[in-house]
């Protein structure tokens, strides 16, 4: 493998990435790479350091030491460029409840620097693919949870980012909606968008191409779900997770 071409294929690269808060090392020398179009599951117990790591990768928090690039930009030196090249969605959505569906799309498209024509055209396409044409003029707060979630995800990738960060995107929804949501994730990944996702549903970990498990700020395991199950002699990802996360020494967990 030629180094330059393979690096272009890597959307996230971290090397000994570390974040300390005073004496507390929240993220402790993590190194990993995520390929273009990959669905990467980022697991860990509460307090393991996932959120801190994700904030660094999104350009929202400057690391204490180590290296990291996201979408080709240095997370130390070019956090603003990082922010432009990524999408982000959390369980709490981030849509404006008092704006209509199309207004939310226009707002976020505008923030990411898309022009009016582009926004109008992509909005039409999106309403069709989501089968949302009747919802276009509705206030977001009037939509059922499953709709909001689909919309929040679609808005987060509307500007066609290289990578989208999903922070527990499926919390609280019913099992059918949860599965439909993952079909959207697959479609995004198939179109070349890299997906970086955290979840507490261990069945969802199985849908990822590769999964990392963080324990006390370190990445304790990183592999495909199949290989992890083999390595840890477990029948499910829950079994793998339970074995690893139980090792946690931090009282926070």
């Amino acid at each position: 493998m030629n180094d330059t071409t393979s690096n272009q294929d890597k959307v996230i690269i971290t090397e000994n990435l570390t974040k300390k808060f005073g004496h507390f090392t929240a993220v402790d020398h993590i190194s990993f790479e995520v390929k273009k179009g990959e669905i990467f599951g980022f697991l860990g117990a509460n307090g393991a350091g996932k959120t801190t790591a994700m904030r660094m990768l999104c350009g929202l928090s400057i690391p204490t030491s180590g290296k990291g690039t996201v979408a080709g930009y240095d997370i130390f030196k070019q956090p603003e460029m990082v922010k432009r090249s990524i999408g982000y969605m959390s369980q709490k959505f981030s849509l404006y409840e008092d704006l209509k569906v199309w207004e939310n799309i226009e707002l976020f498209g505008g923030i990411y620097g898309m022009n009016d024509k582009e926004i109008a055209q992509k909005t039409d396409e999106l309403m069709k693919t989501l089968d949302f044409e009747n919802e276009r003029d509705k206030l977001v707060k009037s939509l059922p949870l499953g709709f909001k979630q689909k919309l929040a995800f679609s808005v987060s990738i509307f500007h066609n980012p290289q990578v989208v960060f999903l922070d527990e995107p499926t919390g609280g929804v019913d099992p059918i909606t949860r599965r439909k949501f993952w079909e959207l994730i697959y479609a995004a990944a198939a179109s070349g968008i890299t997906v970086f996702v955290t979840t507490h549903y261990m069945d969802e970990a199985e849908y990822c191409d590769r999964v990392s498990i963080m324990v006390d700020g370190k990445i304790e395991a990183l592999d495909s779900p199949e290989n992890l199950k083999k390595t840890f002699n477990a029948t499910s990802m829950d079994g793998v997770f339970q074995q690893l996360a139980r090792k946690a020494k931090r009282v926070d967990s």
């Binding site: 860990g44 117990a45 509460n46 919390g171 609280g172 261990m202 339970q242 996360a245 139980r246 967990s253």
Partner: peptide, 10 residues
């Protein structure tokens, strides 16, 4: 247990 990891949930 909403939003709580599988180990803490157990």
């Amino acid at each position: 247990t909403t939003g709580v990891d599988p180990v803490s949930r157990k």
